[in-house]
Amino acid sequence: MTIDDIIDFVEGLDDVLTLRPVPGDGSPEISWGDTFFYYSPDGVVPTTTQPFATIVTKNYPGDEDSRLDRAGAFRVNIHAGKEAFLATLGRAPREPGPAHTDAGASDTVIAHPVYGSAAWLAIVNPGPRTGRLTRELLCTAHALARSRYERRADAVRRQN
């Protein structure tokens, strides 16, 4: 899968807002070249929630284990929730993973090197082994984001 394949797939889901920061748009320089996916029926960047998935193309401070400084390397990060995390990795998000996990291994689903305890999964350069699962996890993350959005909207309606 290429970055464009992933973007096209996610943008095919309902009510997705895609942010692709570039120089001059007011976004932090570290985010330039990366992609952030939000569930946003109104097309406005949510201020109270994180994206449900991201694509990063470089190492971030404190997050170098995936070795994204290699040519062509990128990582898909997916907030697929506790159930999908458990089903995919066979353990709960806060349980320690195997000591031998290589966060930079391509085409392998791992707990996110920084946000794994919050039920984020990660795949460096998804390929033949993980392509189908990557799409399934993205759909799960999108559905969870939609559900969170609807719960918040219902709470606001009940307050008014």
Rank of each mutant, 00 (worst) to 15 (best):
F37S: 01
F37W: 12
Y39R: 13
Y39P: 02
S40T: 09
P41I: 07
D42W: 08
D42N: 08
D42T: 04
D42H: 11
G43I: 00
G43Y: 02
G43A: 03
V44E: 09
V44K: 12
V45I: 06
V45H: 07
P46S: 09
P46E: 11
T47D: 08
T47I: 10
T48M: 11
T48K: 15
T49D: 07
T49E: 14
Q50L: 03
P51D: 05
P51K: 00
P51T: 06
F52M: 02
F52K: 01
F52R: 05
A53P: 10
A53V: 02
A53H: 05
A53S: 15
T54Q: 08
T54Y: 03
T54P: 13
T54V: 13
I55N: 00
V56C: 01
V56S: 01
V56F: 02
V56A: 06
T57L: 01
T57Y: 09
T57K: 02
N59W: 04
Y60L: 10
Y60N: 13
P61G: 11
P61S: 15
D63K: 15
E64W: 01
E64V: 05
E64M: 03
E64T: 15
D65N: 13
D65A: 15
D65G: 05
D65V: 01
S66G: 14
S66W: 04
S66D: 07
R67G: 02
R67T: 01
R67V: 00
R67S: 00
R67N: 02
D69H: 14
D69Y: 12
R70F: 05
R70M: 09
A71E: 15
A71G: 00
A71Y: 04
G72F: 07
G72Y: 01
G72K: 06
A73G: 06
A73K: 03
A73C: 08
F74K: 03
F74R: 03
F74T: 00
R75A: 09
V76W: 03
V76C: 04
N77E: 03
I78Y: 07
H79Y: 09
H79S: 05
A80L: 00
A80V: 14
A80G: 06
G81N: 01
G81H: 04
K82L: 13
E83N: 11
E83S: 14
E83C: 00
E83M: 12
E83D: 15
E83T: 15
A84F: 05
A84N: 12
A84M: 08
L86N: 08
L86K: 10
L86Q: 14
L86E: 08
T88G: 12
T88A: 00
L89C: 01
L89T: 04
L89S: 09
G90S: 07
G90V: 08
G90P: 06
G90A: 13
A92F: 07
A92T: 00
P93G: 02
P93A: 05
R94C: 03
R94A: 14
R94T: 15
R94H: 09
E95M: 13
P96M: 06
P96E: 06
P96W: 00
P96L: 14
P96Y: 01
G97S: 13
A99K: 11
A99P: 07
A99I: 06
H100K: 10
H100I: 14
H100Q: 01
H100M: 00
T101E: 10
T101F: 09
D102M: 11
A103M: 05
A103K: 12
G104Q: 00
G104K: 00
G104N: 14
A105M: 12
A105G: 11
S106M: 12
S106Q: 06
S106P: 11
S106F: 02
D107P: 09
D107F: 04
